[in-house]
Design a protein around this nucleic acid. Structure first.
Lengths: 154, 154
DNA sequence: CATCCTTGGTCAACTATGATTTACTAAAAT
DNA sequence: ATTTTAGTAAATCATAGTTGACCAAGGATG
């Protein structure tokens, strides 16, 4: 199969490759998490909540605001993840309407292994790249993330 | 807002940052393409077909095989893109059942500008990084893509 | 204090998207 | 002649979201 100039160009596009590697990593992460959690029902949408939940606990409304979706949809996903024992809820003592969402880090071993699995792709990357290149790449990619997020606001 | 160790760790995860930058670039690309093509109906799913269409022309079935989805769904998307004049079809002289899909590169100026816009994110990246770091990063990321694609098959 | 508006959360009904399955036609290959 | 392949159409499905209606708790104001 012969490659045209334009196809070479496509292979040579950093943006294209970054999109691709992002998707592949995501796919791998989901598979790893499903396997380790032993939860085949774990869906992309659940994983998508992770970056918005911090370890001090976050309310449903706050997650919704951060993610830019309705609190109704977040509420549903959180409930499912609570059922899966990935998250747990705790009433806010300051505001009895509010429920804070937490990672179940201290839960059963299986859950802990699941959370680890989510990070496992990084071990693979570390292996592939070596520690120094990993760190230098992390710095560069983080820079790019910052650039694109800045552009978004502007 | 105070950061916990685990949150720092999340910021420091290369995989997480790669997923993020991929999505941001993708979003930017879609916005640029919509703007330049003057086609607000252009959807993610349409753009997703691009990497599987090469400039010698590709059949619907072949695109479906490459993408790993049914030819029915590809057929529909291709028809929409033909209606938008982004693609055009040509009968295969070798096989009268088969229709080959082509980019409308020689079409109206607006379309050409649209295709350029799809590549425009790379100009931004080139600016941000400089040419040498761009190339070195491209090499590394392409390496990662290869690794993950290999793992996928294995 | 009583009222009124806002906010946190949930439920249910609906919507859009992107896929699938089933069913079909026509051409190619065996 | 039979089976496989290219393409399409229609019905259906799963996902991830929305909107609207609602309740209960907080906050502000007369």
């Amino acid at each position: 199969m012969k490659k045209t100039d334009l196809e070479k160009q496509k292979n040579a596009s950093l943006s294209h490759q970054l999109i691709k590697v992002g998707r592949l990593i995501n796919e791998k992460g989901l598979a790893a998490a499903r396997g380790a959690f032993q939860l085949p029902e774990l869906k992309q949408s659940h994983l998508d909540l992770f970056p918005y939940i911090d370890f001090e606990g976050t309310s449903v409304s706050e997650i919704a605001r951060r993610k830019g979706v309705s609190k109704q949809s977040v509420s549903k996903l959180v409930q499912e993840m609570v059922r899966m024992k990935i998250l747990f809820l705790k009433a806010d003592p300051e505001d009895s309407r509010s429920k804070h969402v937490f990672f179940n880090t201290s839960g059963p071993l299986a859950i802990q292994k699941g959370l680890e699995a989510l990070m496992s792709v990084d071990h693979l990357l570390m292996e592939q790249l070596g520690e120094k290149p990993y760190m230098s790449m992390l710095k560069k990619v983080s820079g790019l993330v910052a650039v694109f997020q800045a552009k978004k606001r502007a």
